[in-house]
Every structure is written in structure tokens, then in C-alpha cells.
Amino acid sequence: MREFVPSAQLMLGTRYLVLVLIAVIFIFPLLFMAMSSLKPNLQLLTDTESMRAFLPVGELSFDNYKAAFSRAPILTFVFNSLFVTATTVILTLLVCSLTAFSFVFLQWRGREIAFSMIIATMIVPFETIAIPLLLMVSKLPWLGAEGFELGWLNTYRVQIIPWIADGLTVFLFVQYFKGLPHEFIEASRVEGASWWQIYRRVVMPLCGPVIATAAILKFLVMYNQYLWPLIVVQQETYRPVMVGLQYFFQYNTAWGEVMAYLTMITLPVLAFYLFLQKAFIASIASTGVKG
């Protein structure tokens, strides 16, 4: 008897099969959502009993989308969410990477303690600080276009500013910075670069992978905000997408419209993810050094 040796082709085939299976498992809910959004309510419910739920069959139309638009100011919600998310992601990356930079590269008294305190904030669930935070933001001053005002409720800033400082992002950057060769920083210093120049010209350009990771994580957190905006935003003008979902469960629940709404608000996430994936690979390709 000859021993059974799997050929390289067979191995590759098995690997693809497993990957396809995993992909299918992940894609089914999305498929269900997208397909259902095209179906009338009645068919949608009966289709769930079979594989038809995942197939574009039966009576298909964009009626659910039209109805969804008339039920809620979707564009406003999407804009609000994207604006809040984008601003927060950018500010978080900036502030937290600078914080991490000072922890890793600058020598100052008490930085170990400060760092462990920042790390400790990661284990506090948001729910426990939501109410104290609400009391705080409701009384905070702000210097706006109309002069001095008190209270941050019903604004964009109340959805952005409390989320900028972020223990997880600081942690990710600290870990990454620690892995950068120390000689890069030392060489820059000898060459005459200031700390700011080292940050901007040497360290950050090498941070593609961690920027992409931190951005995706923060994007998801911010785009999925629900509890906080529910508490601090009562006006439709500043409402984000997740809170907007409520509009579809008031009076009568139309599942077709829910699915249409969900499909629309999922698109920006997918787009952002694909964009970053490309940037991520490009940054690894350009900064990779062998040896």
C-alpha cells in the first residue's frame, strides 16, 4: 500500500473550500438583509422559511426604499453619523497618537502611572459613566458663533468631544511605537529633527497598519453609537443613524423598510472598510523592510 499523500492541489482546494464556507457564513445575514429589502412585507416573512430568504426571487422592487425615505430623514441621519464619525476618528487618531508618542519617546515624570491610568479606563463600561457624563456635558460652557453658551446637549460636539480620548487607541499606538526601531528616532534627533518633526515625518509615516486598525475600530464604535446620542440628542437635526432606526419600529413595524434602512446605513461601513483595507496593504507594501 502506498501512503496517502495529499497533493498540493488538493491542499489548496481544501483551503479554498474552507475559506468559501467561512465567507458564506459571514455573508448570509448581509444577503438576507439586502434581499429582504427588495421584497414586499408578506413575501419577506414567508420567504424566511426557506432558502428563498437569501435569493432575489419573487416580486422585487425599490418600494421599501421609497417608503423608508418618507418615514425618516435618512440623509440627515447618515450625514450626521458620517460627520460625527469622521471627525471623531480623525481627532482620536491625532490626539491618541500624540499621547502615545509622549509615553514612548519622551521622558517625563509619572508617565508610567499616567499610562496605567489610561489603560484602566478601558475596563470601565460606558454605561456606568453615561449619567455622570450627561450631567457634566449639560452644564459645560461653549464659545460659539452666537457668543457664550451653556450646555452641550443637542449638538455635534457632544457626540464628538467625549469620545476623542480613547484608552484603546492610545494602547494600540503605544504598542506599535514600542516596536519601531529606536534608532529611527535617535537618528532623526542627531539629524536635527524636533519632536514634532519626528512625529510627523518619521513616526507617523511608518504607522500605516496601526492607523488603519485604530481607524476601523473607532469608526465602528462611532458609527454604531446608540445609547449616548439617545440621551444627549433630542433634536432630529443632530440624530445619528442608529437612533434613527427607532422611526421604523414606531406605530407599525414594516420589516421591508427596516431592511431597506439597514442596507443603506451598512453601505458606508463597507465602503470605509474596503478603502482602509487597500490603504493598509499599500502601507505595508511601502514600509516593509527586509532584514
Binding site: 529611527f184 535617535e186 537618528a187 532623526s188 529633527a193 514600509t287 516593509g288
Partner: peptide, 27 residues
């Protein structure tokens, strides 16, 4: 370091991977 008028060559070279040779030399 920058006010001492010295320059240093490191054992690990420490040339910046995200810059071309020209940019590295001109840093």
C-alpha cells in the same frame, strides 16, 4: 544632539524605510 554639530551612523543603519534614498540622504 542637534546643537552639537555631530552626525552618527548606526549599526542597524537606521535609514527610513518610507523615504527614497535621496530623501534619506537629504533628511
Amino acid at each position: 544632539p542637534k546643537e552639537r554639530g555631530v552626525s552618527m551612523v548606526f549599526q542597524s543603519y537606521a535609514i527610513f524605510p518610507h523615504m527614497t534614498v535621496r530623501e534619506n540622504v537629504a533628511f
